[in-house]
Design a protein around this nucleic acid. Structure first.
Lengths: 332, 332
DNA sequence: CTGTTAGCGCATTCAT
DNA sequence: ATGAATGCGCTAACAG
């Protein structure tokens, strides 16, 4: 790789002159500038970004940390983020937090590899985030609240969304409503559970311990939980699944067992992933404004980078999307 | 941020000593090592990764360039790549090529920001790749062939896969088979078209220009193409869509029009995305071994980094997944 | 075993 | 308008 030094010597100028010329500094005469640019072209010179980052103490890059780079769920979120980062002339790179302590995500958080970070990865712990967040490296947290300097909070109203979902189930006449739970260490899951319980309480339904099933936010978990319900021969009226993937897993299990969804049992999910519209029957669920969330997250980063730390946590509203899985229009 | 200099002076040793101690160099006595580590802890020292990268001329990072970070399609591919990058102690970062010349992807390709790159983004052009590929920065190309030094090729047998799909349609008794095409500048699309034509030819069916519809690899494109077919009141026996998303879009349009898929018309897709299993009727399609592809790509990078350039292009086989969209078992 | 020193590639201050 | 020199934070060759 040719360096700026090579360019300078080929052009017969000093390194600093070459640097100025390459960066279009007006103090350089057109004549020398041309000479330098010609040399650069000839050597196929490309500035070394790492050296520049080191010198300028700035990377022009925003990092997005996801617990799993390959989730189907992030599509819209990423679009929202990307829109804003591009508009601001920044780069976006996505890294995974798989691997815990040794993950790329942790490395990016600790070393100064980006100018800002957006986190949606529950396996990254608070201490790390608090340590990483600095004035010139704001962190936006999407999956939990955390009150600390230089960390911004954006959240979806999980509690309210869950409330809406369960209320819908109750309005349809269901009384025995199972909560199909995500992992216990997930804040999102916790809030959804709270919303579920509040809806029961407001409708004078007593929560029963029997109504709690663990599904771990995965399709397999949902499938398995439904199987257990079937084996116990004790089907509830309805299920509120803490995310769509579990709901879809459960639907699969019930279909295999000949249970008619929407008639024998009602199911509501959470997230509104792309699949929700396509499963059969299509899934009633709570939609999160993912794209807006992404855009806001990026916006918050840039504002923070400009010194404006908006400290109040932002709460985004959800929307209940009614489809067929609770028994519906299409008469399923 | 505390630097190694701060650590050294707090510990009362030279910078180099601090560096050695921090990096566990055995030449340092346990006593001084402890002193240095204590100082580092006290200052909450974190090495500056960028400085290290500059010095060592190595980033320990593999880049994955995708045309769209948010595609549903890459899930398995990423898993495959991640498995082997992690196993090799490297980091993986994903960047998008959206934005053309100014995209993050181009920046990563030109500047030396990773130790290797995997490309699946047809809007990155060959010249750029040829220029970027170096001995210490191999490039694996997943979406087209390119014979150049330090670039490795891994491909799916698009032609053969398409052939299988169309042959299947023909064996079911279909004669008028439309090709629902992806973008013309896509190599994958081109090869699929070739496979389609070969299958027709081998079965003595003459290809008709009327059978070519453009769908641009998007769901909307597929939907629109199907609408046009409907408007022309000239439905074919079958459709071979160059990817699943277009096939799904077409299915939607036909369903809306009351055309029964699998009976009035047969449809085959390509890719086997997650949705393919869930659409109604479920989609017969050609499955690509995405996870294997990812794993191979990463493996090739590391072999290349060790000086072993496997120059022969690798061709991965596809598999025809028969579901319901061509009329089938479930009697749809 | 520890310290001195040079240098990775670049931007930039200060002279000229 | 141009050049010489410095330093970003780190590693490592070399000297002691």
């Amino acid at each position: 790789m040719a360096t700026i030094k090579d360019v300078a010597s080929l052009a017969g100028v000093a390194i600093s002159t070459a640097s100025y010329a390459l960066n279009n500094n007006p103090r350089i005469s057109n004549e020398t500038k041309e000479k330098v640019l010609a040399a650069a072209r000839q050597l196929n010179y490309q500035p070394n970004g790492i050296a520049r980052d080191l010198k300028s103490n700035k990377t022009n890059t925003i990092g997005l940390i996801l617990s799993d780079l390959s989730g189907p769920f992030y599509s819209e979120l990423i679009k929202g983020i990307q829109d804003v980062t591009i508009a601001n002339g920044y780069d976006l790179i996505a890294v995974s937090s798989i691997g815990g302590k040794n993950s790329t995500a942790v490395k990016f958080l600790k070393e100064k590899r980006t100018d800002g970070v957006i986190v949606l990865a529950h396996n990254i712990d608070n201490k790390l985030i608090i340590n990483a967040a600095r004035k010139d490296m704001p962190v936006v947290l999407l999956d939990r609240p955390l009150d600390s300097e230089y960390v911004l909070n954006i959240q979806v109203d999980n509690e309210g969304g869950a409330y809406k979902a369960v209320e819908h189930l109750i309005s349809l006449g269901h009384n025995e409503i199972i909560y199909l739970s995500g992992p216990n260490n997930s804040y999102d899951n916790l809030k959804r559970f709270e919303g579920y319980k509040r809806a029961l309480k407001d409708n004078k339904i007593n929560f029963s311990g029997r109504w709690l099933y663990q599904g771990n936010f995965t399709k397999e978990g949902g499938y398995h939980a439904a199987k257990v319900m079937l084996l116990q021969n004790d089907l509830p009226d309805a299920i509120f699944a803490a995310n769509d993937e579990m709901a879809i897993g459960a639907i699969e299990a019930f279909k295999q067992a000949g249970v008619e969804i929407g008639k024998d049992i009602a199911i509501v999910g959470f997230d509104d992933i792309q699949l929700a519209e396509y499963v059969n029957p299509s899934l009633t669920t709570v939609k999160q404004p993912m794209r807006e969330m992404g855009a806001m997250a990026a916006q918050q980063i840039f504002q923070a980078l400009n010194g404006n730390f908006f400290t109040e946590p932002i709460l985004l509203q959800t929307e209940l999307i009614i489809r067929e899985s609770c028994g519906s229009r299409k008469g399923k």
